[in-house]
Structure formats: structure tokens, C-alpha cells
Design a protein around this nucleic acid. Structure first.
Lengths: 244, 244
DNA sequence: CGACCTGTTGAACCAACTCAATTTAGGTGG
DNA sequence: CCACCTAAATTGAGTTGGTTCAACAGGTCG
């Protein structure tokens, strides 16, 4: 019997953001899950260039996926939220192409990589979910490419804040117009391909424009509609997604 | 019996770039395949915002995946080569988030979207391949994000040319140091987040530096090693990938 | 208290952009 | 075969969004 949360009573699964599972499906996941790990803020979960015998689903906490270049430049590929699946690259392709780091304390469910094939043979629904997850990640990365390639600094920042806000909101991690956000301006800058200095100036401009502000680890969303428009994002809800 | 190429004697499958299938697996694919379509240069294969009852594998020809913004800006997400699978987003998530366009005449194998689930229940190997493909696309898009976020115009162009060259090379579409390339400077610019004018200047600089040149639809790779170094790409061969 | 991390602001600089004009290469029809 | 037309490529000149360098302020922690 795995330690920690029982899949059957997993609080994440209750959220409307995630697709539901039948009782049998949950039973399978419960025996598929091998345990839980708790990580300190700043811990490395998966390392660029290495494989991993274990895959994860985030139960709580936030993190980053990033790539470190030879010369020290860093690109944050995207941010990691509860419900995200970690290690698909290592699980399927054998090696991680980026590093996953905890930005807060995190709790992760663990699965054995060696049993992934079992999903495909015994639980096609879960295999389908895995593909869904990969296709969805692909979509989000495509949106990121569009943002980095075509939008200016202000639009990029607006896009990042809205994407983060909507996700946190769907996870019930916002109170009124506030959310705790562990990411530093440095992280946002590295995610958006901006210098730290410029990211700071852009955030200042958004604050003065009454759109959003980020201070002392708290994000305040002042005008979600206007910020979304600036970001070029339609006003739609977060799409429902599978969770493993 | 499907029209056109029989999977058993598919010329693409012979290439070392693609993983092989057993005779039975090929037999399944043959009956899974519903036919072929030939497209003229410039044709739209899949449209942003729409679903598609049919999915494709590229048999021959090149194309682009791109996103068009409200204001006319365009981002080329990536380029499409023979062996690529098209429509996974529509197949899994119901709607394409980008447009796929033929840059040359193309021939595509077709599959019925309605039978994708069959893959998961009856051919777990193929389902695994699908996930592999999605994970690999995710990886490449991650690399694109890194390139757009952190690299300057010259490095970006070097990266694009090397990526394209290696792929064409693995497909046997290069002769000596040459390859036919249908993409316009405009396409490269849109893929790299550069203005057309600047893309042109950067290409001129690469040509004068004796690294690579692009003229009249022909790419000449003059110094692959130096260009790869500039692009920040290690000198490794194209990884083997599944093909459906 | 000092060290350090995060955030802020000013000033100078430069990579890349825009605007604009010109050349080259194909393609078409007379 | 040439005249014309259009798409693609090229080059120059001026502008700007974003960078770098540098200094400084506030908080937190050992």
C-alpha cells in the first residue's frame, strides 16, 4: 500500500480542472502509484541529460522546467503546477532534455518508469491520457513559441501572468484577486527571454497601468480582461485535462 | 485495399531514421491506413481552430506549421518533413491550434480519426509510438523556446539551418553539400522571430563567413561543424523515431 | 551587524526593426 | 524570344525596444 494520499481521496482529482476516473480506474492507479516524495524549495526533481527510474505527478507546490546553456544563460521552458506529470521525456525517450526544479516545497506522487509499458497494455485509457498530456504540453509550448517569436516585452509579460493566474485559479489557489507566487522576476525574465532589468520595468508599467502587480511573492490580478486582451488570449476557461 | 504505396514497401520505412515494424505490425498499419492524398504546393492541410476527421503521415514533401495572429503577424512553429505525423492535436484534443501548409507538392497517408482509439486498445505499440512522437515534438519545441528566448539572430539562423539540414540529411534528401529547400527567407524569419530584412542580412553574413548559403531554393551547407557550434547543437546524429 | 538575495532606477549603448528603394529571378502571354 | 509582371532577395538609412553596466534600497537570515 502506498504511503501518503490515497488516489481515491486525492484532493486534486475533485477539481473540475481534471477529468474524473471510475472506481476501477482509481484502483488501478492506486496500485500503480509507488509512493510519495516531499521536496524542499530549490530541490532538483529531474536533471537535464539524465534518465530517471521514477516518474511523478505533482500533488502540491510549484516549480520550473528550465534549460541551462553552456555559457550560463538559462531559459525557463514553462512553469510546473499541481496535477502536472513530470518525466515523460525520460519515461519515453530515456533522457530529460531539461531540468525540473521546485520553486516551493513540493509533494509528488511517484510511479515506476519500468511499469509504464503496463499502462499501454493494461490500461489504454491511461495511455490515452498520457498522449493527451503530451499533446497538450506540445500545444502550450507552441503558444510559448508564438509569444517569444512575435510579441513584445509587455505582451509577453501579460501572457505569462494571465497563463499563471488562470492555472492557479483553476486549482483554487487564488483568493479574490490575489495568489501566492513563488517565482522571482528573474524566473519570469528567463521564461520570456527578457533581461531581468527589462522584466522589472515592464512589471512596473503593468502595475502603474492598473493591470496586475507582483510584489513580495504575491500576484495581484487587477484587470484580468485587459491583461488577457494585451496578451492576445481569448477569455476562455482552462481546458479540462487528465491527471495520472 | 488502400490506394497508393503499400506500407510493406513504404520507402520511408527503409530509412535508418525510422524504427522498424514487424510483418504483423505492418499488416495492421496497412488496414489502418485509409488512403493517400496528393496536395499542391501552398495547400492547407489542417486549419487552426478546426478539427479534422482524418490524420496524416507525410510520405513526401515539406511544409510548415504556423500560427496566424489577429493582427497578421505569423509565427512558424516548426517545419514539416516526410515521416511526420499530422493532426495529433485534432485527434486527441479535438481542435488544431495551428495551421499546416504544404511548401512543396506533398503526398500524405491518411488515417481515420475515429479509429485512433483502436490503436490504444488493439496496438499498444502504436499507441506508445504516438506518445513517443508527441514527447519528441515537445522536446523540439522546448529547444525552439530556448533558441528564441536566449539566442541572437545569427545563432538562431544557424540553429534553424542545422536542424533542417540534419533532418533532410537523415531522409536522404541531400546531395553532397546541397539540398533543395522550398522555404523562403520569409518563412525562416517567421520561424525565428526575426524581421525579413534582418533574416536576409544574417543569411548574407553566414554566406560571407563560408558557413552556409541559401539561394534559389538550394541550401548549401559549407561548414556543418562550425554552424552547429554556432547554433549550440552537439554533433550528434538524428535520433531514431517511430513512424506510423 | 554584515552578507545576501530581490527588486528598482538611471544612463549609455546596440541589436534588430521599420521604412524605402532597387535588383534579381521566374513565370506568362503575346 | 522578348516584354511584362510579380514574388523574392538585397541594400541603405534612421529609429527604437531592449540590453548592459552600475548604483542603491529593502528584507531576511545567520
Amino acid at each position: 500500500m502506498p504511503t501518503g494520499t490515497d488516489c481515491t481521496s486525492c484532493p486534486l482529482r475533485q477539481l473540475a480542472l481534471f477529468t474524473a476516473m471510475s472506481a476501477e480506474e482509481l484502483a488501478f492507479m492506486r496500485q500503480f502509484k509507488t509512493g510519495e516524495v516531499s521536496l524542499k524549495k530549490g530541490a532538483t526533481i529531474l536533471s537535464q541529460g539524465e534518465g530517471s527510474p521514477v516518474l511523478y505527478t505533482v500533488l502540491s507546490g510549484l516549480g520550473t522546467r528550465s534549460v541551462l546553456l553552456e555559457d550560463g544563460r538559462r531559459q525557463v521552458i514553462n512553469f510546473v503546477f499541481p496535477g502536472d506529470f513530470l518525466g515523460l521525456q525520460a519515461g519515453i525517450m530515456g533522457e530529460m532534455k531539461h531540468t525540473v526544479t521546485a520553486a516551493t516545497p513540493m509533494v509528488l506522487c511517484t510511479f515506476a518508469r519500468s511499469r509504464v509499458w503496463e499502462l499501454f497494455t493494461r490500461q489504454p485509457e491511461r495511455a490515452y491520457d498520457l498522449t493527451w498530456i503530451a499533446a497538450m504540453e506540445e500545444h502550450f509550448l507552441g503558444e510559448t513559441v508564438v509569444t517569444l517569436g512575435q510579441r513584445d516585452a509587455t505582451e509577453r509579460m501579460a501572457w505569462a501572468l494571465v497563463r499563471i493566474w488562470r492555472r492557479l485559479s483553476a486549482l483554487g489557489l487564488c483568493r479574490e484577486d490575489r495568489a501566492v507566487l513563488p517565482f522571482r522576476q528573474h524566473d519570469l525574465a528567463d521564461a520570456l527571454g527578457l533581461s531581468l532589468v527589462h522584466a522589472n520595468r515592464v512589471l512596473g508599467a503593468l502595475r502603474r497601468a492598473g493591470l496586475a502587480e507582483l510584489a513580495r511573492g504575491i500576484l495581484r490580478m487587477r484587470n484580468h480582461a485587459a491583461l488577457s486582451a494585451l496578451a492576445g488570449l481569448p477569455a476562455e476557461a482552462e481546458e479540462r485535462r487528465p491527471i495520472l
